[in-house]
């Protein structure tokens, strides 16, 4: 077995993941590109496990399992954030997210947008159906 083949595959997968994270506007596609990067790291770990002799046997495969668990947790929280973003702004484009923090009492600058859930408990039932009403 030539270890250079899976190593180079993993490097190219990582490069494609970086490209996807920087290029894509849709937040779900950004998460898919993050999955590509995590898979590249897993491939490196498993290949190193089979090629290198370590003090603890199979440390690479155990780490790959841990990274898979971390990826599952990351995708759960990440998709919750993306869906909440869609509920608030009716868009998942990552370059339209305002990075400056909105102060208390300031009016939402997104004209016509649905009321975010932070303005009070009374607005929360309307927040779920707001994107449909906006279209």
């Amino acid at each position: 077995m030539r270890p250079v083949i899976p190593y180079v595959t993993a490097a190219l997968l990582f490069g494609l993941g970086v490209y996807g994270v920087l290029r894509r506007r849709n937040a779900v596609l950004v998460l898919m590109a993050v999955e590509l990067m995590l898979n590249a790291v897993n491939l490196i770990l498993v290949t190193a496990d089979t090629t290198a002799r370590a003090v603890l046997p199979h440390g690479g495969q155990v780490f790959a399992l841990f990274v898979i668990v971390l990826a599952a947790a990351e995708i759960g929280v990440g998709l919750a954030i993306v869906l909440q973003l869609y509920r608030m702004r009716a868009s998942v484009a990552v370059d339209e997210i305002p990075l400056a923090e909105r102060r208390a009492g300031e009016v939402e600058p997104h004209a016509g947008g649905p009321v975010p859930a932070t303005t009070g408990g009374g607005a929360s039932p309307a927040a779920g159906s707001a994107p449909e009403g906006q279209r």
Binding site: V18, Y19, L22
Partner: peptide
């Protein structure tokens, strides 16, 4: 997509450099 020469540059650089 965003218009992305920087993305292609950084992604390609990372991938090909690591390779």
């Amino acid at each position: 997509d965003r218009p992305g020469w920087p993305a292609a540059l950084i992604g390609g650089g990372a991938g090909l450099g690591l390779a």
